[in-house]
Simulated assay, not measured.
Amino acid sequence: MNAMTIAVAIIDDHPSITWGFERLIETETPRMRPVGSAHDLAAGRELLRRTLPDVALLDLDLDGEHGAELIAEFADTPIRFLVLTGLRDEEMHRQAMRAGARGVLGKHERPETIVRAIGRVHAGELWLDRTSTGNLVDVLRRQAQPTPDPFASLTTRERQIVAVVLEYNGVPNKKIADVLGIGENTLRNALSTIYSKTGAANRLQLFALALRHPPKP
């Protein structure tokens, strides 16, 4: 098996849905492989503990149980959650993102879009459509805790990185790294330091902080 294969778990309360997504992911072998499926909260928890996948496709409504509980429960693991939902309840989407989901994807999306989203989330990026991005940024901006200047402790180079990340919000890390003239690993390490200094958990929250407190050059 290719060492870079992305292991994907599918958690949805409709067996026909999980079957379909497993078949879709199998078509991406060896780049991706399904590691199992579950149809309720308890089975999903057991599946995640047993397989520790790279990416988990997770339905928010698991026969009346809230799938976001799993996102919070596994927040300290390397698992990256991609919410796969037929619900258009923006509040549930926001709850999932606050819990730590890396993106929200509609079940109606084309197969190639779903595959692309899995790859992006695995690469450490966010996956949100324009509407979800606008709504989430607005909520994060309103709910952000008052702070004098979350960017005050950043170095000049870190401020340059933040400026490019904000300018190219939503594009892959590779593009941002190319613009900065650095490698992707260097960018990831720099972003990790920036997140630690500013209190942001990801690029979306960094964007929300910048809207509330525009960083100085």
Rank of each mutant, 00 (worst) to 15 (best):
S37K: 12
M92W: 11
R102Y: 04
I11V: 12
A3F: 00
L191E: 15
T155G: 12
M97C: 04
N2P: 06
P15R: 01
Q95G: 06
K174N: 05
T133F: 00
E184H: 04
L84Q: 07
G44I: 13
G44N: 12
R80C: 00
E109C: 13
L52Y: 05
I11Y: 02
F74M: 07
R212C: 03
R116S: 03
F21C: 03
N189H: 12
L52W: 00
D138S: 12
D12L: 07
G103W: 10
S153T: 14
H39C: 06
L52P: 04
I25S: 08
I182T: 15
E112Q: 14
R50Q: 13
Q160R: 10
D54Y: 10
A99V: 05
I10Q: 08
K216I: 02
A117E: 08
G44F: 07
L180I: 13
G67A: 00
L211G: 08
V8T: 09
Q145F: 07
A163P: 05
A190F: 01
V35E: 13
Y168N: 14
V137M: 14
G170I: 10
R130A: 12
L57A: 11
L57F: 14
A200E: 08
I6P: 03
R33T: 15
M92H: 11
S196K: 12
I11K: 01
E184W: 00
A152M: 06
N135F: 01
P217E: 15
L154H: 06
A9S: 10
D89W: 09
M4W: 06
A117H: 02
E90W: 00
W19V: 08
R80A: 07
D138F: 07
G134F: 10
R50G: 02
A200N: 02
H39I: 11
F81H: 11
P146T: 13
D63N: 14
G44M: 10
N2V: 01
A163V: 06
D76M: 07
V164P: 00
P217S: 13
A200L: 06
D13C: 03
E26Q: 14
P146E: 15
R45S: 05
I176G: 07
E73G: 05
V139W: 12
G100K: 08
L154S: 05
L136S: 02
I161S: 00
E125H: 00
L166M: 03
L209P: 08
M92G: 01
N189A: 06
A163T: 15
V8S: 03
R110W: 02
G86T: 14
K216Y: 00
D54R: 05
A75K: 10
V171I: 11
P111Y: 10
T113A: 09
T155P: 04
P214S: 09
R159V: 01
L209V: 11
R142S: 09
D63G: 09
